[in-house]
Nucleic acid binder design. Structure first.
Length: 226
DNA sequence: GCGACAG
DNA sequence: ATCTTGTCGC
């Protein structure tokens, strides 16, 4: 698939300058009907070792199909700064996507979509960069707060509200007894559609299968390094 | 000024 | 993100 070069800011101010115009391009509406193949993106990293990124092509009916991987030396990584994760991991994900024999129709990313201080979490950033629908699934909260306590039952969900009251995603209980997942639209998809996609994915444990499998692949590749 | 803070 | 033992619970 065609992948435009990803800008590598040298510092935070440069990264901020790049975020602003892109956040304005995020489209928070759209349906995922017709989407059959998505790419689940997850990364694994151990200090002192290169970061391993995985793009797992997943067919909604057939399940996992192929795996694209990429590694980025630690020296080339932008530092981890909450709110700027995309500048650190997106380059690796783009390389992993290039390694796939075919392009996905949408992205499922381990991280926030618009549930972000400036409306551009890594899922949104990648979606805008590749002009693909995308959804963010994070394991912890970065921005926004659940409008009310999240019920304990599997399948329950409550909206995530920004300080100004604007809904930016959902706190979602994928399985009973597990900590919530935070689902937010990345790009070209609406709030409910983003949640609907995640709810429709097979989920054996806390994470939806596509992401869980991508995570296992990344972890296995990381451990295979040493 | 004091916390909070994706991976 | 990863480092780690035992431990609680289905």
């Amino acid at each position: 698939m065609e992948v435009p070069p990803f800008p590598r800011p040298k510092d935070l101010e440069e990264a901020q300058a790049l975020q602003k115009p892109l956040a304005a391009k995020v489209v928070v509406e759209g349906s995922l009907e017709g989407v059959r193949r998505l790419a689940a993106l997850d990364a694994s990293h151990k200090p002192g070792r290169p970061l391993v990124a995985v793009a797992l092509l997943y067919d909604l009916e057939k399940g996992p199909l192929q795996v694209g991987k990429a590694q980025v030396p630690e020296e080339e990584l932008f530092p981890y700064v909450p709110g700027f994760l995309s500048f650190r991991e997106a380059p690796a994900y783009l390389e992993a996507l290039k390694a796939l024999p075919e392009a996905p129709e949408a992205l499922l990313v381990d991280g926030q979509g618009i549930a972000h201080p400036r409306g551009l979490g890594i899922a949104s950033h990648l979606g805008v960069h590749l002009d693909l629908p995308s959804v963010g699934v994070a394991k912890s909260l970065l921005f926004g707060r659940p409008e009310r306590p999240l019920p304990r039952e599997a399948g329950s969900a409550v909206r995530l509200l920004a300080p100004d009251g604007r809904p930016v995603g959902y706190a979602y209980r994928s399985r009973t007894g597990v900590r919530p997942l935070y689902v937010s639209p990345g790009h070209r998809v609406g709030l409910e559609e983003a949640l609907a996609l995640v709810k429709g994915l097979p989920t054996r444990f806390r994470l939806p299968e596509p992401l869980r499998l991508a995570h296992l692949e990344a972890l296995r590749a990381l451990r295979a390094l040493d």
